[in-house]
Amino acid sequence: TPSSSDVQLTEEAVRRYLIRKPMTTKDLLKKFQTKRTGLSSEQTVNVLAQILKRLNPERKMVNDKMHFYLTE
């Protein structure tokens, strides 16, 4: 199996991460690296933005950085 798409950027995947712990945009981008999803940088940003807008996660500042999280 090619390794180029072993990770999928989906709403469910993002939801699972944000339920587990608060994450910054950079934390999320690390989970969905382009080399793992096969998406371009631009696609990754656009898709992740759409997903976050739909999920509308809670936000809190930790160490001066905005973190997103969800509760079950």
């Binding site: 945009t25 950079k26 981008l29 690390k30 940088s41 656009n46 933005a49 807008k53 905005m66």
Partner: peptide, 20 residues
């Protein structure tokens, strides 16, 4: 690279700022 990651994070935050 980490600078590309920084750029992507900045682009994502810009997208979200319009919304949030």
């Amino acid at each position: 690279s980490s600078s590309e990651a920084d750029e992507m994070a900045a682009a994502l935050e810009a997208e979200l700022n319009d919304f949030m």
